[in-house]
């Protein structure tokens, strides 16, 4: 505090001011800068140490089972017990969805609620980027963050399968499908969570709201599906119910598009249903993008 408010102004004077005549980046490059800054922020990098705990923790939680499964695959194959991965790649996101939900619930408010709470938006909007650039950068950063979280374990699983000597061609196709699915999971989770977070300046509310929406919708949908599929023995209706929670929605697309095992009691009952699942998935992403741009067009600065 030696220089606090009573700092010697004469010293400032002597250093002299230097202007800046160097390069100035374009709007696109600035948006890219905001994207990388937000992506780092999603993992707590460049923020206080306590901001890193949850994101890095969830990253580890998602990665550890993949490491274990990869080791199991190698050991199992050597013992002649296994000729395919224990868990299909496409099911990994569904199995680990609790960790995913916690991650987005913490990262999305970190990305947008803080700027609302501290009223920092004017600092951005008074600079050479537009409101829509801000929305795009934040959405893209969250999507990338979730994708990293999902893709790294998938790659670990894949490497395990290769090391175990499973059919390389088949494994490559399977993991590619799962990675495509991961892109959809990331886009849907990121869009919904950023949209929810953009309506509150309180990080706690954001976290609670996102966890509630994701966990509640999944538990209601999956238990309804169970009741309809097994008790009422109507798997077609159970399949359609999957439309109503983000995780089962994207899982439905995977089931239909790649013909993989459903992680829910029932997948889309027909090709038409599968197509509807895909359209709804893309629709959710498009609609949240539209809603976010509207939200930020109106936000007062």
């Amino acid at each position: 505090m030696s220089h606090a408010d009573g700092s010697p102004t004469g010293v400032i004077h002597n250093i002299g001011y230097r202007g800046y005549d160097g390069e100035r980046l374009t709007r696109r490059a600035i948006t890219l800068g905001l994207y990388t800054h937000s992506l780092r922020g999603a993992f707590g990098l460049g923020r206080a140490a306590r901001s890193k705990v949850v994101p890095i923790g969830m990253f580890v939680v998602l990665l550890l089972p993949a490491v274990v499964l990869a080791v199991v695959a190698v050991v199992g194959a050597n013992m002649g017990q296994l000729d395919a991965p224990v868990v299909p790649y496409t099911r990994y996101a569904m199995i680990m969805q609790a960790a995913l939900a916690i991650f987005v619930a913490v990262a999305a408010p970190q990305a947008v609620s803080l700027d609302l709470r501290f009223h920092s938006l004017p600092l951005y909007l008074a600079r050479p980027l537009e409101r829509v650039d801000y929305v795009r950068a934040k959405l893209a950063a969250m999507t990338t963050a979730v994708l990293i979280l999902l893709a790294v374990p998938l790659v670990v699983l894949y490497l395990g399968s290769l090391a175990a000597g499973f059919d390389a061609g088949r494994e490559s196709v399977d993991v590619a499908q799962a990675l495509l699915g991961a892109v959809l999971f990331s886009a849907v989770l990121a869009s919904l969570s950023v949209l929810i977070a953009s309506f509150t300046s309180r990080r706690g509310f954001g976290i609670a709201a996102i966890v509630t929406v994701l966990a509640l919708s999944y538990s209601i949908v999956s238990s309804l599906q169970g009741v309809v599929a097994f008790d009422a023995d109507n798997s077609a209706a159970a399949g359609w119910i999957g439309l109503f929670s983000p995780m089962t929605l994207v899982d439905g697309v995977q089931v239909w598009a790649f013909g993989v095992t459903a992680s829910t009691p029932a997948g889309p009952p027909s090709d038409l249903a599968g197509l509807v699942f895909l359209v709804v998935t893309l629709g959710v992403v498009a609609l949240t993008y539209w809603a976010l741009t509207r939200r930020y067009r109106k936000v007062k600065v």
Partner: peptide, 23 residues
Amino acid sequence: DCLPGDVSATELVVHLARMSGLP
């Protein structure tokens, strides 16, 4: 008031300089 509380002045001003288009 428009400053985030959990970052340092240096980090914030560097970030905002980049947002103004400085490499």
